[in-house]
Simulated scan of single mutants.
Amino acid sequence: MAEQRPYPSDLSDARWKLIEPVLSAWRADRRGRGLDIGRPCEHDLRAIMNAIVYVDRTGIPWRYPPHEYPPWQSVYGYFAHWQNDGVFTQLSGLLRRLVRAAEGRDPEPTACVIDAQSVKTSANVPAAGQGYDAGKKITGRKRSIVTDTLGLLLAVMVTAASVSDGAAGLPLPTQVAADHPTITKTWADSAYRTTVIEGGAALGIDLEVVRRDSATRGFTVLPRRWVIERTLGRLMFHRRLARDYEALPTRSEAMIHIAMIDLMTRRLTRESTPTWRDT
C-alpha cells in the first residue's frame, strides 16, 4: 500500500518538534491527575493537531475531516479540552518568544499595537452573541487583537460587532499589562481614545493614536498600524476565520491562536504557507 501523502496543512517534523513538548506535558498532567481513567488516550497527538489545523486552514465543518484523521468527535473533544485548559494560549506565547529571539529581539516586548476586525457570522452562532457594526456595515462579531511590533499575537478578545472598538479594547490593556509588564507603549487608530487612553495611562502604558492624513486619497501605509493590519490579513488565509463559525466566543479566540501557531511554526522553520497563488 502506498504511503499516505500529508496534506499541505499537516505539521512537518520540524514544526511538530516545536509544539510536541507542550501537548505531551498536557497529556501527562491529565494522566497524573487521573482524568483519563476508563478512557485511555488512544489517539496520536500529532494526528489530532494536524486535524485541528486542517479545519482552521481549510474552513471545513468539524464533522467533515478526511478519513485519514481521527474521528471528528475525538478531534473536537481535544480542541475543546485544549481551549479550556489554555493550551493554545500557552503554545502561542511560547512560539512568540521563540520567534522574537530568532529575530534578535528580547523575548518580552516593550511596545504593542491594538486594532479590531468585524466579520460576519454563520447560522450556528447565537443571535445574542452577534451585533451590527454600523461603521463596517457588518452583522456578526468583532475581533479585538493586540500584537507586538513584529505582528505577533499578544491578546485577543471576541465580542459582538455592535460593541465599539473603544469598549471592546478597554479590557485588553489590562490583560496585556498583567501578562507583559514590560510593555509601556501602544499604538492604535482614532477609535481608541479617551477611555482607553486613560485606562492605559493608569496601567503605565502610553497609548498613541496614529491618525490618517485627511488630505490623503486612496490606500496609504500608516506608521505602526500597518504591522497589525498585516497580521489580520495573514490570519484571513485561514478560511475558518473568513467568517465566525464558533458558537462560543472563547472557541473563536482559540481559532485565532491556532492560526497564529500555524504561522509562527512556519516562520521558525522557514516553511512557506501554500495559498491559491501557489497553484
Rank of each mutant, 00 (worst) to 15 (best):
I48M: 12
K137T: 07
T174Q: 14
R105Y: 00
Y76T: 04
E42K: 12
G218M: 06
N84F: 11
C112N: 04
R63L: 11
I228L: 12
T121S: 08
P107M: 01
T121W: 01
T273S: 13
D56Y: 00
R30N: 13
G93S: 04
G200V: 03
C41T: 04
T269H: 09
T58Y: 03
Q175I: 13
R30G: 15
A2W: 10
I138S: 06
C112P: 07
V196F: 12
A259E: 09
V53H: 09
R266L: 09
I52A: 06
H180I: 01
M255R: 01
P173A: 05
P249K: 05
E42Q: 12
E42S: 07
A101Q: 13
Y7G: 07
S118I: 07
Q90T: 11
A215Y: 10
F88D: 05
S74C: 13
T220G: 15
I37E: 15
V210M: 14
I37G: 13
R15W: 03
P61G: 10
V53S: 02
D56Q: 06
G233V: 04
A134D: 10
T186H: 10
I183E: 02
M255A: 10
Q4K: 05
D179S: 12
I261H: 06
R240S: 08
G204S: 08
V55T: 04
T149E: 07
M49A: 13
V163N: 10
L91F: 05
A2H: 11
A177L: 03
W187Y: 15
D244M: 03
L11H: 04
D244F: 05
D115F: 12
Y76E: 07
T250P: 00
K17R: 15
Q83E: 14
G104F: 00
Q4M: 08
E103M: 07
V75Q: 08
N50P: 03
T216P: 04
I228K: 11
P107Y: 01
H43W: 11
G166Y: 11
F88P: 06
R277L: 13
H81G: 03
V87W: 01
S24T: 10
P171T: 08
L248F: 12
G59W: 04
R97I: 00
H67W: 02
I52D: 03
D189L: 06
G166S: 15
D44I: 00
D115G: 09
G169K: 12
K137P: 10
W82I: 00
R33F: 12
M260K: 01
P71R: 11
M236W: 06
Y132V: 06
A128H: 14
L172H: 09
R39V: 13
V125D: 05
G104R: 02
R239T: 02
A127P: 03
Y7S: 06
L95Q: 01
S252I: 04
R266S: 14
A80L: 11
R97S: 05
E20C: 06
Y192M: 11
V196A: 13
R97V: 00
G59C: 07
V221Q: 15
T220S: 15
E271D: 13
Q130A: 07
